[in-house]
């Protein structure tokens, strides 16, 4: 066990965990931020996507000891109330079916739009290729990203 100081959603947190604990479990079980989801544990499904200094990363494969003083953003910190343009676009297009992958999809899309505010269809395809939606809501995900980008 070791103490780690983390900057998450603009706030300081201290956790006492095994150093190789992935951020996924630190966030879910030690900080009660459960918007980040467990899907595969090997960075293949994207359900655990968070931002590290604004870059989309897979929290399931990111040990807490590797974070240092870099800033973490989770879906809970993307906006205080669901008002981020992507969250609003997700509501407008009524994207979710089961909903389990959607926070990861939104976090990945938010990192994309931060880099590329008006991505083409092909750029969206490429950027979102790491996020599985088992229910198959891909068309609505793409439509929502385009709506958010246009807004």
């Amino acid at each position: 066990m070791a103490l780690f100081n983390l900057t998450i959603n603009g706030e300081q947190h201290q956790v006492d965990v095994v150093p190789d604990t992935p951020m996924l479990w630190v966030l879910r079980e030690h900080l009660n931020l459960v918007g980040v989801k467990y899907g595969c544990g090997i960075a293949q499904c994207g359900a655990c996507t968070i931002h590290l200094d604004g870059v989309a990363v897979r929290a399931c494969s990111l040990p807490v000891s590797s974070i240092g003083d870099r800033a973490i953003t989770t879906i809970e910190g993307l906006s205080p109330d669901g008002s981020h343009p992507l969250q609003q676009a997700w509501l407008e297009h009524d994207v979710p079916q089961c909903g389990y992958c959607q926070t990861g999809q939104i976090m990945n899309a938010a990192a994309l739009l931060a880099k590329n505010p008006s991505p083409s269809d092909e750029e969206i395809d490429r950027a979102m290729q790491g996020n599985i939606c088992r229910c198959g809501t891909y068309l609505r995900i793409k439509a929502a990203i385009k709506t958010a980008a246009a807004g």
Partner: peptide, 12 residues
């Protein structure tokens, strides 16, 4: 619209 949608997209 889905009654749980806001909770889903905010990670509740």
């Amino acid at each position: 619209k889905n009654v749980d949608a806001l909770k889903i997209v905010t990670g509740e």
